[in-house]
Simulated assay, not measured.
Amino acid sequence: MPKTQPTVVILTALALEYEAVLDWIEDPEELTHEGGTIVEAGRLSGTPWTVAVAELGEGAVNAAALTTQIIAWLRPEALLFVGVAGGLKDDVEIGDVVVGTKVYAVQGGKLTPEGFKARPEVWHGSHRLVQAARSVLREMKNEVRGHRKPIACADVVLADDRSAFAEYIGQHYNDAYAIEMEGSGAAHAAHLNGQLDALVVRGISDHANPDKDEADASGSQGRAAAQAAAVAMAILRRLRPRDHSSEPGEGAAEEPRHRGDHLDFRNSVFNGPVVGKITGRP
């Protein structure tokens, strides 16, 4: 019987985030869930991991629903949400990467005669993944400016740093270094799964201010997505599967790249319905 390969799912919201991650994956094969959700799955060279990449679209509700479906389908050992975000602090620059030690869902609260009182929900990044990220960012300090900080999540595109909503974020989520739209949905789905390691990794593409459109037009989103993907791949290279079937470092540097070989995903990786499979990418 073929040996089961440990699996990591990487979720993205936008096409450019998806492509930035997929650039790292060897010989991806397209798999379709019976509900219609599509992923591309392949190997991350030099690691024991099979990586499945999905593009979910925008919004926390959508992310939560599709993340739940993908977890039940692919049964991964770890899950990362990788993409771009707006920076909330003066010392966060475009192209920096924020690894979410916490993810806030910011829109819950109670409206009273005394004003709005926030009732935030928060999910912590997996200790295993945060520790791997800390080590990786130390090693990559000459390549990327990294921050291990909280991330705020709201179904709002923030393009005015002087707005009432920006002030609300600053008052109630003052330690957040970035703001995005999907992380809380994915983190909540992973939390409900129980033992699944999860982490949000975001590249900073703008400063969540009126210059956002100008920054996006300059290509900042593509650069930020590429930086986030590079950090995510470095984290996976540091992470070892829980079964400890191989010792740390064993086979990592020596493992060849097999561009012509394909894993039998139906039999060895996924425990779920696969409707269609397309080998390779153009």
Rank of each mutant, 00 (worst) to 15 (best):
N62Q: 09
Y173W: 08
G59K: 08
A253N: 07
R240F: 00
W73H: 12
A234K: 11
A230K: 15
D206L: 03
E143Q: 14
E247G: 03
Q131N: 12
C153G: 00
E167F: 03
L80S: 08
A178L: 03
I70L: 15
Y18Q: 02
P150M: 01
A118N: 02
A65K: 13
D206H: 07
V8G: 08
D155T: 04
P210M: 02
L31V: 06
G251C: 00
G276N: 13
G46F: 00
M140I: 08
R145H: 12
G109D: 04
T67V: 02
N62M: 06
E93R: 11
E77W: 07
Y18L: 03
G185A: 04
V144R: 11
A118I: 05
A252G: 04
G146H: 13
T112L: 11
I235M: 07
K141P: 01
E26M: 15
V39I: 13
D27K: 15
E182A: 10
H258D: 10
L196I: 13
N193D: 15
P256C: 04
P248D: 08
F116Q: 02
P256N: 05
T47W: 05
A224F: 07
Q221Y: 11
L11V: 09
L137F: 10
P6N: 04
N271G: 14
G35S: 14
A234D: 04
F116A: 04
A133V: 01
R257H: 06
N142H: 12
V21S: 11
Q227S: 14
P282R: 12
G100A: 14
L56C: 06
S218P: 01
H172A: 09
L239C: 13
D264F: 06
V98P: 04
I71S: 06
Y173E: 05
N62W: 00
F165E: 03
A224G: 05
V51M: 09
K102D: 13
P120A: 13
T50Y: 07
R134C: 06
T4E: 04
A232V: 00
R119Y: 05
Q5H: 13
T112Q: 03
A15V: 11
I70Y: 02
G35P: 00
T12P: 09
G59P: 06
G46H: 02
E34Y: 01
A41R: 05
H244V: 01
T37P: 00
M181H: 03
G42V: 05
T12E: 09
V156I: 14
T101P: 09
P273R: 15
P273V: 15
N209D: 15
I94T: 04
E247K: 12
G83S: 08
K212T: 10
N193C: 11
V8A: 15
A215N: 05
F165C: 05
V99D: 08
I278A: 13
P120S: 13
V84C: 14
N142V: 03
L16P: 01
L22D: 11
R43L: 14
A52C: 13
T67E: 03
V39N: 02
P120D: 01
A230P: 08
K277D: 03
A164N: 12
T47V: 05
G95V: 01
H172I: 11
V53T: 15
G185P: 08
K102A: 10
A230E: 11
A159V: 07
I10C: 09
A15G: 08
G42P: 02
Q227R: 15
I179H: 08
F81P: 00
G57M: 08
E77L: 01
Y18C: 07
G59Q: 07
R266N: 10
L56V: 07
D211W: 00
